[in-house]
Simulated scan of single mutants.
Amino acid sequence: MADPANELQTVRDYLRYVCSRFSESTLFFGHGTDNVWDEAVQLVMRTLHLPLENNTLFLDARLTLTERELILQRLSRRIDQRIPLAYLLGEAWFMGLPFYVDERVLVPRSPLGELLESRLQPWLGEREPGRILDLCTGSGCIGIAAAMVFEEAIVDLSDLSPEALEVAAVNIDTHGVSDRVSTVRSDVFDTIEGRYDVILSNPPYVDAEDMADMPAEFRHEPELGLSAGDDGLEIAHRILAQARGHLNPGGLLIVEVGNSWVALQEAYPDLPFTWLEFENGGDGVFLLTAEDLETAGL
């Protein structure tokens, strides 16, 4: 059989070949892309350190043998081992920003990015948050993106996993926000001090049934960042029980619970959850104010 590295020469060749290989595979797309073409563009272009957009100038450029072999190696691992592409590249995009990722953290994919792009409006109003907490931060993408939006805010990135915090620290340095963003190891709120104007969290929320049925790609992600007991609410219960003591008056608690949102709603019939809607997809994100929690006796 002919070696593709000898027959395929240009960027255009590799985009076509990768698309063909992806199309005949049983891959799951859900870690930054949702279709064959976008996944192929990301694999080829980012392996070559080329932009994902406005890149037609390079389509007929010929690749070196080293570049060709690296694309094919990553293609093989993506298909044969079902490794999420972000781990192969060491890079994921969130809110238009690149973040370093590896198998110590989940691949960023939260709809909270869309909320941050709107500066948490209309819920924040004219207030500028002084302190923001990204609880269960993982790669740090949500908190760092918040720091980029609210340029005067002090942001804490919290996680139980020291390995995840190592990745978050890399991203803090990459984005040059170490003067305002720092990491803290904490099991939910256990070692968190002080109060915040905004608490953002994408905690583990996958229930036992969904964990058992997940596509192979998710098996490469840390279980600590996904699994949250039989009903997926193990961490959400703890957040709701303790958040009031860490919010300033008028403060916002915004938490993603995914498919577990129905069970959460049923568990707290007296809480006036605001379930947020997103133009770019995603659901199961609630917003509560400090006063909502206080009124409900939490």
Rank of each mutant, 00 (worst) to 15 (best):
E279D: 12
P269V: 04
D213M: 11
F218Y: 15
R74V: 03
R16F: 15
E103P: 09
L85E: 02
L200Q: 01
V36W: 04
D134Y: 02
A168W: 00
L298M: 13
P215H: 02
A86D: 05
E126R: 13
T274Y: 13
I192P: 06
D80I: 11
F58D: 11
R68E: 06
S158A: 15
E91C: 05
T26D: 13
T10K: 04
G90Y: 00
A2H: 13
L57F: 13
F29Y: 14
T274F: 13
I71F: 00
Y87W: 00
D173C: 15
L50W: 09
L233F: 04
G143T: 06
S260D: 05
Y205C: 03
D210P: 08
W37M: 11
Q9R: 12
C19N: 14
E103R: 10
L276W: 06
S20L: 11
R62V: 10
S23E: 12
R46A: 09
G282P: 05
I235P: 01
L226V: 02
P215C: 07
A2T: 12
L226Y: 00
V184S: 15
G90R: 00
E266R: 06
Q73F: 14
E117G: 15
E256A: 11
V170G: 02
E126W: 11
P215S: 07
A61G: 13
F94C: 04
V155P: 09
G130C: 13
S20H: 14
V107D: 01
L115P: 09
D283E: 14
N55S: 15
I132H: 02
M45N: 11
L200F: 02
M211I: 04
E126C: 11
R109V: 00
A228F: 01
N54I: 11
V184C: 15
E117L: 14
V107I: 08
T56S: 13
V285R: 10
T33Y: 05
D34G: 11
Y17S: 07
E266H: 11
E166N: 02
Q121H: 09
R185G: 10
Y196M: 10
S186F: 05
L72H: 14
D13A: 05
V11Q: 06
G125P: 02
L63K: 03
A5M: 06
L240S: 05
W275E: 15
L50G: 02
M211V: 09
S25K: 06
R62D: 14
P51N: 06
E223V: 14
E294N: 12
T33C: 08
L48T: 14
A228I: 00
R62I: 12
A228V: 00
L120Q: 05
I79F: 08
F94W: 08
A145P: 07
L27H: 03
A241Y: 08
G143H: 04
V198N: 07
I83P: 07
S201V: 03
D210E: 12
L160R: 08
R82D: 10
L120C: 13
S201R: 00
Y268Q: 02
E67L: 09
D34F: 08
E221Q: 06
E7A: 11
D231Q: 01
I144T: 00
